[in-house]
């Protein structure tokens, strides 16, 4: 529509032309509160509430005292903020006879995490590189077998692995658990690296071979420097995956002193002895979720890219 204000500012010479343009003219006015927009944003907002609620509940519950929890509303913000539950969860919460808190589990998880992540990313990156650039007779067969293995329920393979580790004298040891994590992290990460390296132009690889570089020289000097993003993606997948593991932790650790954080958390919260301290439980739960949450919110788009890259083809 011809707007009077705009017309007044245009030069006199153009006015006759502008005056000829009757009816709709220029951009169509946008209705900010259209019906479809209200439906879209309304739905998203309500659903977002459902997703955000548990995190909120965890936080407010962990900051309340037990008396307030017993009389109050689970969704109400704390009247009196206390960090006592956090301190107790970290230092004093009991699992069975041990009462030195979740800190023990945290450090156990940490000790499991570091070697598992380094080893599995290292192996998977070399696997992916070999599978995409140095194929040999049968390499695809082994890869297919590995990928099929990713779909087999872990329970099917658990006991034979117990026997293998026992025979190797590693059952119940940190090394044993690390090896299990490396093995079960291999399919997804190998796939990730294979797809990434396969997307690198083959000519680059050919050029390097004409330049006289071999298997390891091409890997370390050409491929590694250009694959930093995919390493970050693999790191994110492995750190969250291994940190969140429960099944292997409970199966392959021999004594409660060695339990990873998730196992210890479950034992603390679901123990039948004593009075339930919901604030301590929630502080402990939040503490356990903190590592993956920090990684998730810090990595942003890379996390999304990681699961999309891993999952779409997996």
């Amino acid at each position: 529509m011809a707007d009077v204000g705009i017309l007044a500012t245009t030069k006199a010479a153009e006015q006759p032309v502008a005056a000829l343009l009757d009816g709709p003219r220029g951009p169509k006015p946008v209705r900010r509160f259209s019906r479809s927009n209200i439906i879209i944003y309304g739905t998203l907002f309500v659903v977002a509430l459902y997703y955000a609620l548990p995190l909120y509940v965890m936080i407010v519950t962990s900051l309340k005292g037990m008396p307030e929890i017993r009389v109050g509303n689970i969704f109400a913000p704390p009247l009196e903020v206390t960090f006592q539950p956090w301190v107790k969860a970290w230092q004093e919460a009991c699992t069975g006879i041990n009462c030195d808190g979740l800190s023990r589990g945290f450090w156990n998880s940490f000790q499991i995490l570091i070697p598992s992540v380094i080893l599995s990313v290292a192996i998977a990156s070399v696997n992916g590189y070999a599978l995409s650039m140095w194929k040999f007779r049968g390499s695809e067969v082994f890869f297919t077998l590995l990928m099929i293995g990713a779909f087999i329920p872990y329970q099917v393979m658990l006991y034979p692995i117990v026997i293998m580790l026992r025979e190797a004298g590693l059952y119940g040891s940190l090394t044993g658990l690390v090896l299990v994590h490396v093995a079960f992290g291999m399919p997804i990460n190998t796939l990730l690296f294979r797809n990434y390296f396969a997307s690198i132009p083959e000519e680059l690889f050919k050029a390097a071979r004409v330049d006289g570089a071999g298997f390891w020289a091409i890997f370390f000097r050409i491929m590694l420097p250009m694959s930093l993003p995919i390493f970050v993606v693999a790191l994110i997948i492995q750190v969250t995956g291994i940190w969140n593991d429960f099944l292997f932790g409970v199966t392959f650790t021999s004594s409660p002193e060695r339990y990873p954080m998730t196992v210890q958390l479950n034992n603390i919260v679901n123990s039948v002895q004593g009075v339930k301290e919901y604030n301590v439980n929630m502080a402990a739960t939040l503490l356990t979720g903190l590592v993956p949450l920090v990684i998730y919110f810090a990595s942003g788009k890379l996390f999304v890219r990681g699961i999309a890259a891993g999952a779409v083809k997996g």
Binding site: L53, V57, F246, T262, Y278, M282, T288, G289
Partner: peptide
């Protein structure tokens, strides 16, 4: 990003 253990315990509480 969270462990199933964390998820289970939160919803147990809610």
């Amino acid at each position: 990003a969270l462990s199933f253990i964390v998820t289970g315990l939160v919803w147990q509480w809610i």
